[in-house]
Amino acid sequence: MKNTTLAFAFVSPALLFLLAVLGWPLVQAAILSFQDVGVIGSEGHFIGLGNYATILGGAGFWRALGRSVVWVLSNAVVQTLLALAAALILNQKFPGVRIARTWIILTWIVPTVVVVIIWRWLLSSSGGMINPLLIQAGVIERPVGFFATREGAMTTLIMINSWRWFPFTTLMMLAGLTRIPGDLYEAARIDGAGTFQRFKRITWPLLQPTLMVLGVVGTLLSFNVFDVIWLLTAGGPSGATQTLPVLIYETAFKGYRLSEAATISVLTSILLMGFAFLTTRAMTAAEADR
């Protein structure tokens, strides 16, 4: 069907809406980053690259960037491993598999604040289930504060966030797995390949395109995670879990340095867009190679 006018009529409401709500604010953020606005609503003056010098010259931005990198990479590793295992299981036939494939996403559809309540409670030292379980299993001797130390807080957050997101990843991988022709496994079996051999020679290589897409999307999505971190640790203890989104939020709404926050936002956007651009190009190139 060729009807260019009608096509534009269909697309433009969504497009204009996105432009107004996401595109225009981005331009505003860029403008703000060259000014010296403090509290929301106050007037700003043009100060050139002053904010960029402050941000790039200070340690806060770089530390938060480092934490974001740790956060994204750890989440990627944990979630990929969990999701791969779960997807391989759900790719089998067993009674109830359809129900399992639907309801595994439960952790992802409930509000983040519910996830926060669940884990705050389960991990708490009074009435929480996890401490007694670990003591019974002999892993620890007395109740521990999961968010008390710097490393502990980060690790716990990564685990909770992975718990929330790995079902989503599982479903994406499952989609990739169901696209691998069953004949391949049959042929390999006849040739005498074992379970591990079949995984290594068929599943793993044919899952690569799916994993690459997930790598890009997952990186961007987990980079953006704010509410789980904010509601569980607020970036603490002493900044140990302050990733870039948390830093932006804190600078703007706790520190009342709006222009500085806008500057970090712009830098973050440039980083993410650069990442998205480079990875999609690499993926297109890899696709062309095949």
Binding site: A14, N224, I248, S265, S269, M273, A276
Partner: peptide
Amino acid sequence: TILLAYAFPGVVVLIPLYGLFA
């Protein structure tokens, strides 16, 4: 472009959006 918008951090447009809504 629309797909890119999906992966965009909300916190980045939060500050200017607040100003616009105000």
